[in-house]
Amino acid sequence: MRSVTTFAVIFAVLSSLVLLMSPAAQADTSLTVEVEIPRLSVAEYHRPYIAIWVSDPHQQRVSDIEVWYDTAMANQEGHKWLPDLRQWWRRSGRQLDLPVDGVSGATRAPGNHSISVRESALQALERGDYILHIEAAREVGGREHLRLPFSWPADAGLLQEQQGEHELGRVRLHAH
């Protein structure tokens, strides 16, 4: 009887150690971010710059998921307005050598956009609490920054959602 109990305790300890030490143990969980860019009826419309990134609860950057900006302009002219994504610029952008493969991308049209968070970004996550940031800034327009908290590893049923009011529509984070 005692040996069975001991075995059970050891097994429990070992399995939690495995969980603690190996983030890859949860690699079968994936995250999807949905971002709605609202259609605005304004005289001068430019597609917004948008940064999607993950920080710890103290706003320290953990990984960048996507940054959408004018990547096609000559002489990296499109970089000029990246500091308008103020928090992302402070926490990440200003340290980066842009463009970043797999992160930098062209601006997107109004509508719903679904992004699967790439494996390498998930592998950077250790067990703990995080914030997914979605920050948007539009030329001659406004700025909006939404935050979706989550824990990692994520439960398969995870669904966080917020409704933007200005530069963003509905944003969602779900795990599956």
């Binding site: 002219e77 000029k80 307005w81």
Partner: peptide
């Protein structure tokens, strides 16, 4: 005070 890009 905060600038970015190629030789801003």
């Amino acid at each position: 005070t905060v600038l970015a890009g190629d030789e801003p």
